[in-house]
């Protein structure tokens, strides 16, 4: 036990990290990279704006921390007991107090304006070209394509032992979501049991799946590629092991894929009652 602890705390993982660097290179977009320190690459309009907003925030955050640290450092050097044996007795300075109330308010307004813009942009109802329906289960996802023949399939994680080269552990699934690029997609999210959260960082998607309700969000994928996500609300024993994998393809390939998928995942039986047209009562 002790050696194991030591190994794992000191050196053991270095080899692991090395292997990861190699594997990670094959998946530059759509997931994090080793030692990454910032947001994942953006591949949707919302995530692009999140990047912009976060960059602005970072500047403000770092400035505030540096300012406070600087003042602290000056105080430590200048006002220690040795250099300043006689403390001042100043306990008030109205002007100063007004300034340090007013300046933060200005900074907050500077933050709030782009923040609310981003929020309302992300919420703006789009006229979607298609719908993806997401249903969470303990511990896998199932996806329905109501506009393409209403076929549905389950998406289960692939065990580490059977992964192929380049497939990331804990992120790879047997049946990924396939979606077309440059298409506005309505995403409906719900669950069959506990609360889960459907999240794909690069696409700026993160929406709770709550029993008894259907949440809506949207995405428009800008680049072809594979995007990964993980369930982001504690949902029980295998919470860590219900990945989300999105394959974004061209519209043509998407059309071809839906044809195959319809057969592969045998569409659900159509309603027995002949589709009666909607009636206007008025």
């Amino acid at each position: 036990m002790t050696t194991r602890i030591l190994r794992s705390l000191i050196g053991g993982s270095l080899t692991g990290v090395g292997a990861v660097v190699a594997a990670g290179a094959a998946h530059a977009s759509g997931m994090a990279t080793p030692w990454q320190i910032n947001l994942q690459d953006a591949a949707s309009p919302v995530m692009e704006r999140v990047h912009g907003f976060h960059n602005m925030l970072l500047v403000i955050q770092i400035s505030i921390v540096v300012l406070v640290l600087g003042v602290l450092a000056y105080i430590i050097v200048r006002f220690n007991a040795k250099r300043n044996p006689d403390p001042s007795r100043t306990a008030h300075n109205t002007l100063l107090e007004i300034v340090w109330t007013a300046v933060p308010i200005v900074i907050l307004v500077i933050i709030a304006i782009p923040s609310l813009k981003l929020l309302y942009f992300s919420d703006r109802a789009q006229d979607p070209d298609m719908t993806l329906k997401v249903t969470a289960h303990q511990w896998y996802w199932s996806y329905t394509y109501p506009d393409h023949g209403d076929f549905a399939f389950d998406s289960l994680p692939v065990a580490a032992e059977v992964l192929e080269a380049g497939q990331p552990r804990l992120l790879t699934v047997d049946n990924p979501i396939v979606l077309p690029v440059d298409t506005t997609i309505q995403v409906l999210v719900t669950t069959d049991d506990v609360i889960h959260n459907f999240a794909v960082p690069s696409l700026g998607l993160k929406t709770d799946a709550t029993p008894g309700r259907v949440n809506e969000t949207w995405v428009r994928i800008s680049k072809e590629g594979t995007y990964y996500g993980m369930c982001s609300e504690l949902c029980g024993v295998n919470h860590y092991y219900m990945p989300i994998q999105v394959k974004a393809v061209s519209k043509e390939r998407f059309a071809a894929w839906t044809q195959e998928a319809k057969e592969k995942f045998a569409a659900r039986p159509a309603p027995a009652v002949a589709a009666a047209p909607a009636q206007s009562i008025q």
């Binding site: 923040s115 993160k206 982001s232």
Partner: peptide, 12 residues
């Protein structure tokens, strides 16, 4: 605090 950036940060 910003709901707009929570898509990226919530539950991380």
């Amino acid at each position: 605090a910003n709901a707009g950036i929570d898509f990226a940060l919530h539950d991380t």
